[in-house]
Design a protein around this nucleic acid. Structure first.
Lengths: 173, 173
DNA sequence: AGATATTTGCTAATAATTCTCAATTATCAG
DNA sequence: CTGATAATTGAGAATTATTAGCAAATATCT
């Protein structure tokens, strides 16, 4: 699948009786230019656009990301932060998953195409259509373990580890 | 790993400076007797216990399921319903994942031990400790597709398919 | 059996997300 | 190109799941 352009987005929307608006185009543009490993909440997307002088109402932000997730353009991530995050849904060979520390909430991406293959197989076997698949690996990070998780740590402790900017090396599969 | 009993739960709690209460014991009991393929929201767990005359306050329900999820006893599922669901966290050979239709929200379980293997490998490589891993496969179900998803369907349409009670056959892996 | 820190159950508070509806605007037919 | 029509936006109110605060109750450890 190729990256969406304004034109392919319009075609996709129109085929479903929906419309291409400047707001939807801007939102797509933001996600297409987001560095790897980043994902945005609705609030973050709102602020980012607002700072660029391209304000879009929060209602529209929420409606748009939900719509684009249902279309398979965005992925709706539910990590451990208590609110949803969104990122471009990029199939093979850029398909990745998330490892999250349930103590400090930090997230690490990792590539693994075999997960997508497993999902496709499962889905096709029963006549479903795949929109997205996400493996979320809940863990305790090494720092938290070293400091004596769970008893020795205050519940709001957060470790020093930085969210990895670049995906980790692929698993051989 | 063997199923938890009141005693093993107590040992696990005490080792972390926490206590076994009748409430926590009852909640564990509910999940241990839940038929396969079922999972409960906090509200549902509250009502279920209330109907049995074993009322536990909603606050305690929320606190307990969160605690037990962090201990790795329960799994916290984020499917497409807008609120969290919980089920026992049963490792190999009962480890399963979820395929969910984003149109009708119906969920189907499927077994696949290789997902757990992939996750373990990923986690150990970087010195993390695995708590749980969940593959969520977002799909459109055959019924929705047949009826002309997405344009021909009202947004609140729900298909006739029943949530599968028994897990689907394992993938050969 | 008593001391103490944890847990419970209220209720109030929070925070993310959805709803409502009038005003605007993209699309399509002519 | 122009007007008709249905989809979309924006602003704020409303909803809903979940968490916080605190006094009373209670597991656990001497």
């Amino acid at each position: 699948m190729l990256p969406y352009t304004a034109n392919t987005l319009k075609a996709e929307l129109n085929s479903r009786g929906w419309r291409l608006t400047p707001q939807r185009e801007k939102i797509l543009h933001v996600f297409q230019n987001l560095p790897r490993g980043n994902h945005l909440s609705a609030e973050e997307l709102y602020s980012l656009l607002d700072q660029r002088g391209e304000t879009i109402s929060l209602s529209t932000i929420y409606r748009s990301v939900k719509l684009m997730a249902r279309m398979g353009i965005l992925r709706e991530l539910e990590l451990a932060e208590g609110h949803k995050h969104y990122e471009l849904n990029q199939p093979y060979p850029h398909h990745h998953h998330h490892m999250v520390c349930i103590q400090c909430n930090k997230t690490t991406e990792f590539n693994n195409d075999s997960i997508l293959k497993h999902s496709l197989k499962q889905v096709e076997k029963f006549g479903f259509q795949l929109i997205d698949c996400q493996l979320t690996v809940m863990t305790i990070c090494p720092e938290a373990l070293r400091l004596g998780w769970p008893s020795a740590l205050p519940s709001n402790w957060s470790c020093s580890r930085v969210i990895s900017e670049t995906p980790l090396e692929d698993e051989e599969n």
